[in-house]
Amino acid sequence: MPGAQANWLPDGQRLHLHHGPIDMIVGIEGPGREAAFQRAVARFGTLLKELVTELPRLRSPVGGPVEGETARRMVEAVRPFAPEFITPMAAVAGAGAETILRAVLDGTGVRKAYVNNGGDVAFHIGPGEVMRAAIAGPEPGQVAVRSGDPVRGVATSGAGGRSHSLGIADSVTVLARSAAIADAAATMIANTVDLPGHPGIARVPACEVSPDSDLGARAVTRAVGALTPAEVAEALEAGRAHAAGLVTRGVIHAACLSLRGQCVTVGETSMIEEREPEHA
């Protein structure tokens, strides 16, 4: 496998980091941005090796003792969801983004920064700043987070994402205090947007699609056929109820769930705006 690569995007302002299955985009504003980008590149070069070393434990539902910075974030992020089935891998993208962001902030002069790891985003917002990010859904929208808001992570999951889903959601976007928690929560909520036993939903054991999947033989969604508006509403309501419980417990701050053109939101939705985004 080629080593870690770092290249500027065409705008010359954002950095693309790539290594194996990991693709990140890093944006930084402030007088210390040059040194901060250098710290991000240096830290990224060690990230994948650290994760691979601990994969057996990270793919286990109980997690097991871990040593690496990112692995520890993953284990902590999934604790609030026990005793439901979940492994630390549900938080891998968000936790990885946080690790690189910590390196970015390990210095001065960073006014605003974000690390987007395949759509799961960790960010830093200095006083008076606003961070905006596009969110998936039937209508163009964005999340606008201000420095005084408690949210520092946004993540999206669904049946059409990079990872396998037990549910049928087109997308579930979650706002939480960290990207790792948002990542895990988006996965769990997306799993509950479902119509168990529906004949139009094709499922296969996860291990048949990915032999090393942490989901084992659990049935993951491969295709969703025609659904009536009432069925869509039923599936979304199951996910909404689960998300509302996480909001009540303080695990997440807000969530936006979408399926077949219908959308529901829960929690502190004032940060979700229906207009074209400034940052993709």
Rank of each mutant, 00 (worst) to 15 (best):
D149F: 11
S165W: 04
I125K: 02
G148F: 15
T173K: 01
A155I: 14
I168W: 02
P127C: 08
R43A: 11
G239F: 09
T70A: 15
A235Q: 02
E231G: 11
T248W: 05
G245P: 01
G45C: 05
P83E: 07
L236D: 01
A202C: 09
P211E: 05
R39C: 01
G12E: 07
D149Q: 10
I86G: 02
I272Y: 12
M1Q: 07
M89G: 10
R222E: 14
R132C: 11
E234D: 13
A233I: 08
S210T: 15
E50N: 04
G137H: 06
G148L: 14
R218T: 01
F123E: 00
A136H: 11
I181Q: 05
I168Y: 01
T46S: 01
Q5T: 13
A97N: 09
M188D: 00
G161N: 10
R218L: 13
E129D: 15
F81M: 14
A230F: 10
G96T: 11
A190L: 13
C256G: 09
G109E: 07
A244L: 12
F37S: 01
L175P: 03
D170F: 07
A190W: 02
R222S: 14
D212C: 09
T70W: 00
V204Y: 06
V151Q: 00
P277V: 15
P56S: 10
P150L: 14
A144N: 08
R79Y: 04
G167N: 01
R146A: 15
A182I: 13
A40N: 05
F123D: 01
R57W: 06
P196S: 13
A223W: 09
V62P: 00
L257T: 10
A155W: 01
V143M: 07
E273G: 00
Q13C: 12
T108P: 11
D214Y: 10
T221H: 02
D194F: 07
I189R: 03
G30D: 08
D170S: 08
R57C: 07
V115Q: 02
L236M: 14
P196A: 13
A133Y: 14
G64V: 04
C207L: 14
A93G: 06
A179L: 00
V75W: 00
C263I: 12
V92A: 07
R275V: 12
V209F: 02
V66Q: 01
E237L: 15
A219D: 05
G12S: 10
P199M: 07
P138I: 12
Q38C: 02
N116E: 08
A113V: 09
A202N: 11
A280S: 04
P61H: 06
A230M: 09
N191T: 12
G94C: 07
A90T: 02
G64Q: 06
T265V: 15
D170R: 09
A169Q: 02
